[in-house]
Design a protein around this nucleic acid. Sequence first.
DNA 1: CCACTTTCTTGACTCGGTCCACTTTTTCGG
DNA 2: CCGAAAAAGTGGACCGAGTCAAGAAAGTGG
Lengths: 141, 141
Amino acid sequence: MREPADILREHGLSITAQRIAVLRAVSHRPHSTADALTEEVRTEIGAVSKQAVYNALGILADKGVIRRIQPAGSPALYEDRAGDNHHHLICRTCGKTVDVDCATGETPCLTASNDAGFRIDEAEVIYWGTCPQCLAAAARG
Amino acid sequence: MREPADILREHGLSITAQRIAVLRAVSHRPHSTADALTEEVRTEIGAVSKQAVYNALGILADKGVIRRIQPAGSPALYEDRAGDNHHHLICRTCGKTVDVDCATGETPCLTASNDAGFRIDEAEVIYWGTCPQCLAAAARG
DNA sequence: CCACTTTCTTGACTCGGTCCACTTTTTCGG
DNA sequence: CCGAAAAAGTGGACCGAGTCAAGAAAGTGG
Ligand SMILES: [Mn+2]
Ligand SMILES: [Mn+2]
Ligand SMILES: [Zn+2]
Ligand SMILES: [Zn+2]
């Protein structure tokens, strides 16, 4: 990721220590919760309020700088890979989340079998399963 | 849907008025929240605790009798069409949720472009967009 | 450097859901 | 059918994730 301050400037956002640290944290630990990011921000700049983190994540997601995903049964996760509508593969056992490129080409997945007259703007795909480590652990009993 | 009592029996569940009413409610109003279903159950059998509804929904979902979906930004929704892993199309404006058959054939969607060693057991797809009514309302200004 | 705007902090609050102790129902063998 | 044991339901406290709102602090533009 480029310099956080530049990114903020380019989107017309004022530049604050909190936002910079949030951006760095998201970039450093993609697919993290707001809570985990808050901890990371605290180790970086000493202190931050939970609200400041939620505000920063919210506005950055609105501007398309970061992406928020909300898997069932988990708090929202944030990542800096935004704008490409890639998908995710999540381990049911340990929660490990990995990126998956879109299965069906360039502007993919936007065609439902029957769109019922909707204008579709996003196809969100989550693959659920078990990660290699958890498979191995299960095999060992 | 077949007789609720039979369904419960077949899954080894004891038969209670609350469970029967929950099953009927889910069947009558698919893609409803626990809250909406609770109201419907109350009009049917007079009274029910919120906990009983959650318990019934939980165990019925565990047994595969009903399906729970958890779209971002919404409480969980329940439906009686379970076991076919169909997908959903949700209006960002009004929340209207409609079923979409799987785009890619019979046992579909279970192949990610790169599975990273995971054993995938489900591909959950949500199409986001705007429903015909909300499109029309937007056009009218 | 100053006024003005934006953001941050703090703490209360909401919503969806769960936990728990207790009561009521259901089930099932006799 | 009856009565014991098991299962489910009730009501109320509680929880985690996130939001709201008022005042304090920091950023911005001149
Ligand atoms: Mn990702
Ligand atoms: Mn459905
Ligand atoms: Zn795992
Ligand atoms: Zn709509």
